[in-house]
Design a protein around this nucleic acid. Structure first.
Lengths: 196, 196
DNA sequence: GGTAGATGAATGACTATTCATTCATCTACT
DNA sequence: AGTAGATGAATGAATAGTCATTCATCTACC
């Protein structure tokens, strides 16, 4: 097995173990066992336990973020951009449940390095939303009363919590499509019934 | 100092330390120092470290939840109920920042006992939202296409993430009133501009 | 002088990390 | 092609440090 593959195998195993037990309750030996390598081997690929977590965040989440950013930048219509954002985000969360769980749990950690990561890469991600909203406001599509700085958080928080349903229940529950549609419809049209 | 007071003092100190360092990085000696008692004294009031966390969740958050539930049950108008929910939730989060941070971080933990708590008390709290939405749908105030099971999560997730702004920034940032108004307006009317 | 409550040093369990050793694979010389 | 020697990836037992928890002792009040 090539060196890169082993690095990746440890990363995937770590994601699985972190998702199940949480970072602090995860043992290096758990990760080693899951990856079918010796404890010591882990240290040939990562500096320490924390470095593994940071790598999971950086590499795994980074891929998703980059992919979504790229897809959005091809569009100019705010509605379509938001649709892409919601759909891709939820799809990624539903597809990789271990990673989703690590995001839900570990990205909250109060550790300095984790906060740093959250502040850097993650802020950039969330700011995509406020930029789209501002764009929509300039085009008179979205209400000018909306404050993008608050709305971006509400929007992301909603996505984050909604996607949790897939990590915490084993039953099929809501489908990706209906969830996407619901969240979009909620934020675009609101809850109030209107007479045409 | 009476026994009850000391219990409470330890609880408040623990909340502060958990907020700053997170549960796993918090030392019993940190909590003891913060509460100005000896390490051993903690064990006269709590069974173990984890019991302290659970007590923080049960007692501190419990108070807030109960208070909000009570206030809502006095109302019958869905709009007013939601307004109360949003305002009281955000007010509580802004007022007690340490507790807010513990909620943001520790309620996510993958530990069995924490999950149990989340599933029990917390579900009940979130379900308040879906009940209000259903009520509004019956009264033809809210769109019938909205799925309360998804909307309740989106709603709570939004509140949760929005309130984080107060725990992570030291600057005054958004006021309680404008945040409440923004979130409500967002969920009720959506983002789309309409011509009357 | 008896007791409830408080103290904090000592204990011991737990685990991240290290490193001496192994061994499969490669190199280069005959 | 066969072999001696070199390489460094992989191993996992041993180490070393950290803390939650305990408990012998103390304090202060009745």
């Amino acid at each position: 097995m090539k060196s890169v593959e082993k690095h990746n195998k440890i990363l995937v195993s770590a994601t699985k173990v972190f998702a199940k037990k949480g970072f602090f309750n995860a043992r290096i030996s758990d990760i080693a066992k899951e990856a079918k390598v010796a404890d010591g081997t882990i240290y040939l690929y990562f500096n320490n336990k924390f470095d593994i977590l940071i790598s999971v965040l950086e590499e795994e989440i980074g891929k998703i973020i980059e992919q979504i950013q790229k897809a959005i930048k091809k569009e100019t219509d705010p509605h379509k951009m938001l649709t892409i954002f919601v759909h891709k985000h939820l799809a990624a969360m539903k597809q990789n449940k271990n990673l989703a769980e690590v995001i839900h749990i570990e990205l909250r950690q109060s550790d300095k390095l984790v906060k740093e990561y959250r502040n850097k890469t993650f802020k950039q991600y969330i700011d995509l939303i406020s930029e789209i909203i501002r764009l929509g406001q300039e085009q008179h599509i979205y209400r000018k009363e909306i404050m993008p700085g608050i709305a971006k958080r509400a929007f992301f928080g909603a996505l984050d919590e909604v996607s949790r349903v897939w990590t915490e229940t084993s039953t099929s529950s809501y489908s990706l499509e209906e969830t996407t549609e619901q969240v979009l419809s909620l934020f675009l049209f609101g809850m109030i019934e209107r007479r045409d």
